[in-house]
Nucleic acid binder design. Sequence first.
DNA 1: GTCTATAGATAGATAGAC
DNA 2: GTCTATCTATCTATAGAC
Lengths: 194, 194
Amino acid sequence: MAQRDTRERIVSTADLLFYERGYEATSFGDIASAVGISRGNFYHHFKTKDEILSAVIAQRLGDRQMMTQRWEAQESDPRSRIERFIDILLVNGEKIRRHGCPIGTLTSELAKLGHAAQAEAVHLFSLFRDWLAEQFARLGRPADADELALELLSRSQGAATLYNAFQDRAFLDREVAAMKHWLQQLAADASAAK
Amino acid sequence: MAQRDTRERIVSTADLLFYERGYEATSFGDIASAVGISRGNFYHHFKTKDEILSAVIAQRLGDRQMMTQRWEAQESDPRSRIERFIDILLVNGEKIRRHGCPIGTLTSELAKLGHAAQAEAVHLFSLFRDWLAEQFARLGRPADADELALELLSRSQGAATLYNAFQDRAFLDREVAAMKHWLQQLAADASAAK
DNA sequence: GTCTATAGATAGATAGAC
DNA sequence: GTCTATCTATCTATAGAC
């Protein structure tokens, strides 16, 4: 299955380069030389640049879905699961400092390009939005679970953007602490209401 | 002063196109045809693409500085001034829905490109950061004025990014209301401490 | 100060040998 | 399935006529 291997290597390499340099700024030649194949071979696997973008987004969707499933398996209570989401900012801190959030920056770029795949990229946000909403509902906030999910997504996006701009680690740590404190208050209020 | 006019038209047009399509995706030809001049004439005013980017950032800096000065002239108390900042999200709502925040998206793109002008673009954030910090200090929070300024900047960035992605006006309105409520609490706490 | 013409590099994409 | 060679379009940038 050498074909399958090459295809996967192309997608993984494109995923990384699209994140680090941006979609528009990454050429077929960049990807081909990074994978170690010729441009001609490249076109045997993907006919257009749009095709590889779709494959990259699909891979990211799969990755993130596995991530949330792992959190569900490892953490039993919704608050701990949501904390795992917040911790992405710390776990991927160095990457975010250099290249921003891989979901937010891709979505923004595709929106500007008027690219058809923008809707697919937004699915990446929707995946976390829906998963977080489910956790907030279980935490005792079924009525405004979706609003809380969007609010947390929004805060993490803002933190990623400003950390990328200012590169101020103290700011990132404060934002993470603030989100966890906000989450703790929600959990405490929910317990008191019972 | 036909030269000066042409130069200004180039900068204004580039400013708009860089915002709507992104810096990398906008070519000299795009700018030249939008202005209504030839590509050759273009190079009489700007020798490289980097030069025009610097001019665009400088113009945005001037615009935003005038904006904050206008807010200072029109609003006497710091809380009203900070509210004017929050209101940008509503005033420019339609543009943000389609193209995101002009400062956040430019900074992110330049960071990915490893572009030298990224530092200049971050100055745009710093301008608002410093101005907001001054207002928070006057509001009675001199000790953590800069932290509060970054927190508000962060929230507005997150709101802009998610509004651009989901295009959900109700979400944007909720975020604006939440920021104003947070500001009101800060002002009330500051008054009580006196 | 504005234009046309064009260089030189690189982009996405294709054809065909092996 | 991988390669080389090549096409066409477009990009940034320059030269020189008017």
